[in-house]
């Protein structure tokens, strides 16, 4: 899943972080003002979406024994956005470009050397930010927007912060008339999986945010994020996702 852009929107609808990851310049026709407008529009559409819940669902919600009750649980998908196998090797080659060099050639395959792993995940020890399934906080707000060219995923935290990922992976839309019973289940599974991967990924971006932005004493709350460490970590995760 290739991520094209990442946006972070604060609880009042203001854009506090925006980054494009695809390097073609043809899409850079939007200036920063446009992105601000985009963020506030999405913030309000997000709210409208929760008001449009169909009556049928509202009626069924009160029926606790309904077997069709929606499940908001998101499974843990291992190592989304983490570098694979020989961790230090990939880590090195991807960090070469931004002047942050690590002379790890001597211990590149030494997994027992904890030092090189110490700073890998900030304050989260271990090889992944979290390892259990979790319940989504975003039950009736906007979650996914599929278009012909991209898919947008939204993850909202309990404090009202929204993380948006625009990915170039497209949900397949079957052409031609077909019987409803013949829609292959692989298409549904893959699109469900897409949303789950996105939620796992965005929760990890939230973990990175809670480290590099929240713990920076010089960062003022609700203001635009200007942390190079945050940028670097996020870029690393996006690269690992390719």
């Amino acid at each position: 899943m290739a991520i094209q852009s990442l946006l972070v929107i604060n609880k009042s609808g203001g854009l506090i972080y925006h980054r494009n990851f695809d390097n073609d310049s043809k899409n850079n026709s939007l200036n920063s003002n446009d992105y601000l407008i985009l963020a506030s529009t999405l913030h309000s559409v997000f709210a409208i979406a929760s008001q449009l819940t169909p009556k049928a669902i509202q009626i069924n919600q009160n029926n606790v024994n309904n077997p069709n009750n929606l499940d908001y649980k998101i499974p843990y998908i291992p190592y989304v956005g983490m570098s694979t196998g020989n961790g230090s090797d990939n880590y090195n080659s991807r960090n070469g470009g931004d002047g942050y060099s690590r002379n790890d050639s001597t211990n590149s395959t030494n997994s027992s050397n904890k030092n090189s792993k110490l700073n890998k995940l900030g304050s989260f020890k271990g090889d992944d930010y979290f390892k259990e399934p979790f319940v989504s906080w975003n039950k009736s707000g906007l979650r996914q927007l599929s278009t012909d060219q991209f898919t947008m995923f939204i993850y909202q935290t309990m404090t009202g912060l929204k993380f948006l990922a625009i990915s170039s992976s497209v949900v397949p839309h079957s052409q031609g008339i077909s019987d409803n019973t013949q829609v292959p289940s692989t298409i549904e599974k893959s699109s469900n999986l897409q949303v789950q991967i996105a939620d796992n990924f965005l929760r990890k971006v939230y973990c990175i945010y809670s480290d590099y932005v929240m713990k920076d004493p010089f960062y003022s709350l609700e203001m635009p994020i200007k942390s190079e460490l945050f940028d670097r970590k996020v870029k690393q995760m996006v690269d690992n996702l390719l």
């Binding site: 304050s123 319940v135 935290t157 404090t159 912060l161 929760r203 939230y206 809670s210």
Partner: peptide, 8 residues
């Protein structure tokens, strides 16, 4: 935020 990101 750290608490929520960690525990969800």
């Amino acid at each position: 935020e750290d608490f929520l990101a960690r525990t969800a």
